[in-house]
Design a protein around this nucleic acid. Sequence first.
RNA 1: GCCGGGGUAGCUCAGAGGCAGAGCAACUGAUUCGUAAUCAGUAGGUCGCGGGUUCGACUCCCGCCCCCGGCUCCA
Length: 597
Amino acid sequence: MAEVSPEERHLRLIGELDCDPTPLATLRHSTSHVMAQAVKRLFPGVKVAIGPAIDDGFYYDFAKAEPFTPEDLVKIEAAMAEIVAANLPFERQELDRAAAIAFFRERGEPYKVEILEGLDAPRVSLYRQGDFIDLCRGPHVRSTGEIKAFKLLSSSGAYWRGDERNPMLQRIYGTAWLSQEDLDKHLWRLDEAKKRDHRKLGRELELFVFHDVAPGAPFWLPRGMTVFRQLEAYWREVHDANGYLETSTPILVNKKLWEQSGHWDHYSDNMFKLEVEEQTFGLKPMNCPESTFVYRHALRSYRDLPLRVAEIGRLHRNERSGTLTGLFRVRQVTMDDAHIYCRPDQVQDEITSVLGLIRQFYKLLNLEPRFKLATRPDDYMGTIEMWDGAEHGLHEALKANGLAYELKPKDGAFYGPKIDIHVEDVLGRDWQIATIQLDYNLPERFQLEYVDADGHAKRPVMIHRAIFGSFERFIGMLTEHVAGAFPTWLAPVQARVLPVSQKHEDYARAVHARLRAARVRAELDDRNEKLGYRIREAQVQKVPYMMIVGQQEREAGTVSLRHRSGEELKGVPVDRVLADLAREISSRASDLTVGRP
RNA sequence: GCCGGGGUAGCUCAGAGGCAGAGCAACUGAUUCGUAAUCAGUAGGUCGCGGGUUCGACUCCCGCCCCCGGCUCCA
């Protein structure tokens, strides 16, 4: 694609007309205009709203009484292809804002008029291709013929200006790439993502199920619970070694507590409440208020700090029904929480050590963390000075650790700003997982104190942090990240012993018993099925190791080892298998190493 | 919560105002097998839930629940 000269997009407007001038974003933005043109051609009555480039493509919002159907999308795509084939030039035109308002009013485009009325620029730009003219800052490709590879993906409702009080528009999503090859690759990724969907894998691998009777809360099956437990075990190991003290606090708590913490004022829409003997109770949506009871249980000295109080707590949040999505968005959340009470002079070191823990966990699972600083929301508690101080503290900690970060303005918790940690999975999708929150508010609300070296009572600072974030979301993400093929230490079934025929059952049983004695999660598949069938089943279940035993193996005291990767290693002594497995599991290796030279 | 699409056997899905279907899985039997699906038979259902229309409803109408794709919100 040709370079876009700066003068072609010199006009600076603010608001929703932002457009990233990189070639790919420009192409997508242009494709959205072509789509709007096609829609106007096929459905003359619709009104156009906005149509930006987004991460993997573009969308355009239209005001239309009836939603678009899949058949509509096919027709629109065909009309777009015609527009592309016609190779219409994109022509830029500038005019006074008032003239633009008159122009769009005359054309019956109320959304464009509304946008223009909200702008403070004296002049605006329009782009035309063929018979279609749109308010737009640009830039665009030179002509529609430069659009080579695009596809419409879906349609759905979307609120005008993203506000649920506004009318709902019809949005069409599409994707566009610089080459057909890139488009194909993207479509492959979408397809791959569908195959890895944790909801599908969760069922197939028997990790968990959902049921109508408990929307937003999984039933963990034995295999899924094994993954859960192994993550917990690792978590406890690391936290024990890092000076954390584990606690457990009540789930059903009197409203009084939530009033004191501020949750009743700032979070009550998300809380499940119930009446018990004329008192109002709430299921805890967060652990923090109750954590302060652990702190206050004893008189704290400056020597006791930092006090690191951890809790794997089961939380309930009343998420709106339409937002629930598998393990990614649940109503019952198991959070690996901890609250660090420290002196102001300890904050930087504590945050640094939490960042270190997060990097340690994520490295083990081959996840690349990305850091985002979320600042004061509109509905905040406390004073601006407190917030400025806390935001500064988090910024300093990120800087001191040499971590680049993005800003998420107004996205902090109501009691304090946070560093949110996101990861990108193998398919390039982004998940928010861990969080570190700096809080001067709750210590104030709960009148927390410690006795300082000078004998005076001082107020501690509270750091809230979670590494997995929620076990639910984390396991969902991890399942998709590894496509169900968990590293051996996490795999629900680590090895499956397959006798060639029932004649070799005794030896198979002996091998299986030795594996179990070595605390390997091993299964014996001696069903009356052909070997090929049982191999296929183990393969589909992503069992890391299949151990096939027959006459030869029995005589030699070996197994024929088959990795789930398909790799075969014949005649591996059972002793060797046990030793290698023990090493692989205890080191929590991510690769399959057993029997390899 | 909002817009749209769905809910039929454990799973994937077909069907449709007049006896509820298939494949896989399960169970039984035969086969005793060397690296990704052996053969035969059997069993399996409140067609999401509740109401209505009808001689008759899985099918049509109304309400609700749940799921999916988005929006909004979020770990």
